[in-house]
């Protein structure tokens, strides 16, 4: 990773996480954005098109689309078509339950990646997290995508429950011709309430790290770097990309450092009322985030692997930035940290 160029600051994000709605047909217990009902003030179709125009004008390469459930928006496919017309790649995170043959047909585009969330390899385990019937519906959606040869990943949030089925989930993904990706659980949104009983223990985190090293094809998302071994460091970012490579736009058009830091104190601007470039380049929130240093980690021999880990997890568990990621495997974090589930 060419950290030297990234740390100096890029002219625009490479990738923008865009949560297009809070509306969702499921109610997952770990939802990062506490989604459910549509909220007042969500961007209209025309406002969304302006967001796409702004990102295209700034040469943003990719949208990571999430929510809520994006397909709940009736204009969603039209918006994706518009983004593709502008040359922007879209990686769509979905619960998969609304994908049918017609949607799969429209998604068969060379600028589209799809990521379907599953949190268990069986209906019982998945539906305990994501709601009754969600496993069966997601599988049906995955089959529709497979028929169209659309590039798909199955994404699982690492929890005390899902960690028990990683092998089965990897097998399920392989049987569907999908890649497998495991994301860290973060205590934002409804995840704040389920963190205590769902977050993995330190022993499980170590076990997962070993599992990853035996499953090199499994990707781990944006900043799962701090729990991986040396031999995986080339497989992903070795630093937090927030405000350097990426940022987040909420369903209301608010701009934040990342999807897991949608808190008032991190609000950097609002689209489409404000121009995006000044928000990205000059907002005090983004500038201070770029200068964030995890000083207590700098002497650690793993520092070059993780650069202190995920600031969002540190923030949500310790209520301020600049502290180490409590999921660190080097035991550099005091065991007195207010973490649930630490063995």
């Amino acid at each position: 990773m060419s950290n030297q160029y990234v740390e100096r600051g890029l002219s625009a994000p490479v990738n923008v996480t865009w949560e297009v709605t809070y509306a969702c047909n499921l109610a997952c217990v770990h939802c990062l954005s506490d989604s459910g009902a549509r909220r007042n003030g969500e961007l209209t179709t025309e406002e969304c098109r302006k967001v796409i125009d702004a990102m295209a004008a700034n040469k943003v390469f990719q949208f990571s689309i999430g929510g809520g459930e994006p397909f709940v928006r009736s204009d969603f496919m039209d918006l994706m078509d518009y983004a593709h017309e502008k040359g922007i790649v879209t990686c769509i995170s979905t619960n998969g339950t609304m994908i049918d043959d017609e949607i799969a047909r429209r998604l068969a585009h060379n600028l589209v990646y799809i990521q379907v969330s599953l949190d268990g390899a069986r209906p019982q385990s998945n539906d305990a997290i994501r709601g009754r019937g969600s496993f069966r519906k997601a599988l049906r959606g995955l089959e529709c995508l497979k028929k169209r040869d659309i590039e798909v990943s199955i994404n699982t949030v690492l929890t005390r429950l899902s960690i028990l089925e990683l092998d089965a989930l990897a097998d399920l993904a392989a049987s569907l011709g999908a890649k497998f990706r495991v994301s860290r659980f973060r205590p934002s949104g409804r995840g704040k309430r389920s963190w205590g009983h769902l977050n993995v223990s330190r022993k499980q985190m170590l076990s997962f790290s070993d599992w990853l090293s035996d499953h090199m094809s499994v990707s781990t998302g944006d900043s799962f770097f701090s729990v991986t071994h040396e031999d995986r460091k080339s497989l992903g970012l070795n630093m937090c990309g927030a405000c350097k490579l990426t940022c987040c736009v909420s369903p209301l058009g608010e701009v934040y450092p990342c999807a897991f830091l949608q808190e008032n104190e991190f609000l950097a601007g609002k689209l489409p009322e404000e121009a995006f470039a000044p928000v990205w380049m000059n907002s005090p929130v983004f500038q201070s985030f770029r200068e964030l240093e995890i000083r207590s980690c700098e002497s650690c021999d793993r520092f070059e692997l993780c650069h202190g880990g995920c600031p969002a997890i540190a923030y949500h568990t310790q209520k301020r930035l600049g502290l180490p990621d409590p999921g660190c495997l080097a035991n550099c974090v005091s065991p007195k940290m207010p973490l649930s589930g630490v063995a």
Partner: peptide, 12 residues
């Protein structure tokens, strides 16, 4: 895709 950056070119 490619865009201009201060250091040179960024390819995606």
């Amino acid at each position: 895709q490619v865009r201009r950056e201060e250091f040179g070119l960024l390819f995606y």
